[in-house]
Design a protein around this nucleic acid. Sequence first.
DNA 1: TTGTACGCGTTATCAC
DNA 2: GTGATAACGCGTACAA
Lengths: 345, 345
Amino acid sequence: MARTSYTLEDVARAAGVSPSTVSRVINGTARVRPGKLKAVLEAIERLGYQPNLMAKGLAQGKSLTVGVMVQEIASPFYGEMIKGIEQGFDGTLYHPVFSTGHWRAEQEREALRVLSARQIDALIVLDGLVSEEYLLGLARKMPLVLFGRRVRGLEHNTLLVDNLQGAYLGTRHLVELGHTQIVHIAGPAFHLDAKSRLEGYRKALEEAGIPFEPERVIEGDYVEPSGMLAVESLLARRIPFTAIFAANDQMAYGARLALYRRGIRVPEDVSLVGFDDLPGSSYMTPPLTTVRQPTLELGREAARAVLLMLEGQPYEPPLFNTRLIVRESTAMLRHSRVALPGRWS
Amino acid sequence: MARTSYTLEDVARAAGVSPSTVSRVINGTARVRPGKLKAVLEAIERLGYQPNLMAKGLAQGKSLTVGVMVQEIASPFYGEMIKGIEQGFDGTLYHPVFSTGHWRAEQEREALRVLSARQIDALIVLDGLVSEEYLLGLARKMPLVLFGRRVRGLEHNTLLVDNLQGAYLGTRHLVELGHTQIVHIAGPAFHLDAKSRLEGYRKALEEAGIPFEPERVIEGDYVEPSGMLAVESLLARRIPFTAIFAANDQMAYGARLALYRRGIRVPEDVSLVGFDDLPGSSYMTPPLTTVRQPTLELGREAARAVLLMLEGQPYEPPLFNTRLIVRESTAMLRHSRVALPGRWS
DNA sequence: TTGTACGCGTTATCAC
DNA sequence: GTGATAACGCGTACAA
């Protein structure tokens, strides 16, 4: 295993100039005589020289690396965001480095520790439970972009989605189809999004003059099994319903399976609405009506925000809107098929 | 923004020792007098000192970073592998850094370039089209672990899954249920896995005395829409079938939707088998019978292999087995319901 | 056992 | 314009 790669000095020697000149050519830091410029460029080409980013980082006190703390790397939702973040850094000198928190404050801190040891220049935090003080402390040290949390003092670093409006749209869609017995499978109570979506559901009901009943809200944890359990619980408690609004698509998938197991048809017997519009939702059987959240764009915007902050430019985060995607899991309520608890349990 | 973090020298000063002693304490490079050791440890603790990995890397010619070239970061399949890789490096000093190739040789090279600029110490390559020579060249420079490809000379760096056997199991399952009109939605021909799975399908048919008919094989591209198109093409050409073996779960999802659209029931009219056992497959309607590939374990093993190679230890890759997961998308063939092309098109 | 001095590959600050 | 020279923060011979 000979020398693994060339150094700036090698290039300088090959081009017959000083290392500083080579550096200047590479970074465009200063003008150099055309002749030398050409010689340097050729030498770089010929040797296949690649700058060592660690050395560059050491010298400049930068790492050209942006840390991303994500909760789960293999979830369809975060997957899209990660993809967006990657795209956002594409073509720049910066590169994202990921670390996972698994929704546990302790692991999140560990993840952040790992990232900071790598001298990240900026940080993107997707959801999580780590304390606000901790985040505020980080924000003092480097550009920080937050998603899914609201922290006082970090308003300008936070990407917001109008979850309340989205949930309102989803629920109103069911109301417009004639449904009145609409249950809600909510997300975890400590989750900001979940709270907003519950509010949106409530708002749509109230607007339609349908009484809000707490027993019609089941709290899940944003993954499939909880959606399934929610439906089973509803059925076991003989709570009648003709429509379900799930706080995210994954729980809607779970709910859909529970209904299938009981022979309850979607959408003939029960209409189902999700939230997120995951890539798989258009392939659910039947394709899922859901509230689209611009996940990919959110990731791209997070990267864009970081890049701007890194340049010292001001950043004003936009409010992201959601939109209803009507597919085939929702249908007009037909009275002959209203859910009869007795029939299902 | 004051000084962002402490240096080894700060710790040395605080502990009243020399920087080298601090270094020795941190790396356990040599024994130090208990008194000083204690002082150093306390200083580290008190200052909250964290070593600068870039400087460390520069000094040792290592980056403690492992590059991972993956084709798609937001796919359920690669998502699981990435998760496994992350888990595999957890608790070690190494950290994975990802870059995506999108199944395009040019982008793959770019991704590899980006990674090598970061001085990665080792590389994990998941699938792809970049030339064998290129991979061989990389393997000469650093530990390399390959998945999804076979390259002469890199046999000991390659993680292999017995795809042929898996496809055989999936197809045989259909045969055992009485099916004889079994179509295959294959993966891209240039894909090694796809070829093996096609062979497995063929082997199971031949073993059962069922003639292999090329027109019953439709080539897809491993994503949902192609599975949908495959079924539509079959139907349009009035090729009768009572069972589908899809080369991966994502295409099975697409096929399932096409069947739903035509009112063809699964499994009553057509049985469906996939491959991979993605996290979502147990929530398909009906839950998908599929051939499980130990994706998470593969990721973990890739990390383990890299770690061993990094230590200069010999590595002998195991052959990963698949196993059939029978769920509800397959059923005994009932003659009264054999697919009648006339009825469906 | 411990400290000093140097080098890792690059950029930044000087003079020239 | 250009080239020495000194950092950047750490590991590591070497000397003590």
